[in-house]
Design a protein around this nucleic acid. Structure first.
Length: 429
DNA sequence: GATCCACAGGAAATTAAGGGTC
DNA sequence: GACCCTTAATTTCCTGTGGATC
């Protein structure tokens, strides 16, 4: 039996690992941002005209996740605000939106309005979009006495999701011609390097006046970033000498993601602390890496809608019972139709939608769906689970409606015939 | 080289839901 | 309560794909 009192007593006695763990969190902005001098200088040069009360050019910032885009913008923002205060100029207004959460034209406009005037909020739905736009102009002129920077983080998601967002971005980029007093500057941030190609040329010419690319960090740069933070985050002697190079090397393998490197280091520290180890060793880093991956998968599976869980369960059932046969989209759909009848309150989806959900599962990394052509036997996805069956079983356990179906043996698996649109076909081997 | 299969996936249409105004 | 608006989810329709087979 676990001796909880003894554990707590030992926990207090063992050496502290962390001095200040928040320093390792991604939202922490350090006083110095290593290897981002060029980008800081470029943004500073563009926004400096704010100090002469002129509107800076709109900016597009590109770079993969964890390359310091948001941190650099926040860094410049802090310094520009201080400079404005020192020069007795009105401080610019900064409105930051993450387009993953605020992902429709209406919501973007409404959110900006509500940031400017939280006491008279625009409703979350119901108004015609041009009315919201007029309201935005009114609020900008009322509440902004200088420059208003609108930061659209992950702007590519907004554009990908909505055709109408092109119009809104175009209108936002040209909003200054309708403003009497305020001036608006747009900073678009994207993780997708070729995102520009998907933009309407009108939007691109008005919005992308300046472009800044954030390259990925290499292992040496990541090591220096980790060194800088670790000095303040950990107790002296808590880190073995090889830990930071190891974390940097593991993160560098994944397109130089500093956020991932910091996460890995923090998680390794937390594991060492929980195991009451006096220091962090490389084993804790590997455990942490494994834990981060598992946590991501678990969180992803648990947050899936019921339909996606049912499709995942169909792939699970096929893989468990397939006896060496390949799993293709048609099989998964047949199995899904069998399961759907047994899950209360679950509507039947079309094969088109099921195919789309399989694609989403593939993008998330939980399954591997590779398109292959079998000549005259057609072209389809060959699907495999990317995680062990027992792990998926655990991740889906929180969905009560699926609990009785983990041992389900699909009827379609017993025959070599599959049905589609009323026609029978011989299955692939 | 033409044909065929089993989808893949883009685009448009449809439906339902949530909220507003009058 | 009727009607309008936006959005999200899904369906329907359609064209494209790539390699085995004819």
């Amino acid at each position: 039996m676990f001796d909880i009192d003894n554990y707590f007593e030992n926990f207090v006695k063992t050496n502290k690992i962390f001095e200040e763990r928040n320093i390792l969190r991604p939202e922490f902005v350090p006083k110095i941002l290593p290897h981002r001098d060029n980008q800081i200088r470029k943004i500073a040069e563009i926004v400096a005209c704010t100090l002469k009360n002129s509107k800076p050019s709109n900016i597009f910032i590109f770079g993969k996740t964890g390359t310091g885009k948001t941190a650099v913008v926040n860094y410049v923002k802090g310094h520009l605000n201080i400079q404005c205060r020192n020069s007795e100029l009105p401080e610019p207004k900064w409105i930051s939106l993450n387009c993953q959460q605020v992902n429709s034209s209406y919501r973007v406009l409404a959110r900006i309005c509500n940031e400017l005037d939280p006491y008279n909020p625009v409703p979350i739905a119901g108004w015609p979009i041009d009315v919201v736009f007029d309201k935005l102009i009114e609020k900008l002129d009322t509440y902004v006495h200088g420059i208003c920077f609108i930061i659209l983080d992950e702007i590519d998601i907004l554009v990908k999701k909505m055709k109408k967002s092109h119009d809104i971005l175009y209108n936002l980029a040209r909003i200054n011609s309708r403003l009497k007093q305020a001036k608006v500057n747009i900073i678009g941030i994207s993780n997708v390097l070729n995102f520009k190609n998907s933009l309407d040329p009108r939007v691109l010419s008005s919005l992308g006046e300046e472009e800044i690319v954030f390259p990925a960090y290499n292992a040496q740069e990541l090591k220096e970033i980790l060194d800088q933070r670790a000095n303040f985050a950990f107790q002296r002697g808590a880190l073995a000498h090889d830990i930071i190079p190891l974390c940097a090397a593991l993160a560098a393998k994944e397109h130089g993601d500093a956020r991932k490197a910091l996460d890995l280091l923090r998680k390794a520290g937390e594991l060492a602390e929980r195991r009451q180890s006096p220091s962090i060793t490389s084993d804790f880093v590997y455990f942490a890496q494994n834990d981060i991956e598992k946590d991501k998968m678990k969180e992803y599976c648990e947050s899936l809608p019921l339909q996606s869980k049912a499709i995942l369960l169909s792939i699970y059932a096929m893989q468990k019972n397939r006896a060496g046969n390949a799993i293709i989209t048609g099989d998964v759909y047949s199995c899904y139709l069998e399961l759907q009848k047994q899950i209360p309150g679950l509507n039947k989806l079309s094969q088109r939608r099921v195919s789309e959900i399989i694609r989403e599962l593939d993008l998330s990394g939980i399954v591997n769906a590779q398109i292959k052509s079998n000549g005259r036997y057609g072209r389809t996805k060959f699907i495999n689970l990317n995680i062990p069956l027992e792990d998926l079983n655990k991740y889906l356990l929180n969905e009560n409606r699926l609990n009785d179906l983990f041992d389900y043996r699909p009827k379609c698996i017993g025959s070599n015939i599959t049905c589609f649109k009323g026609q029978k076909y011989v299955k692939l081997g």
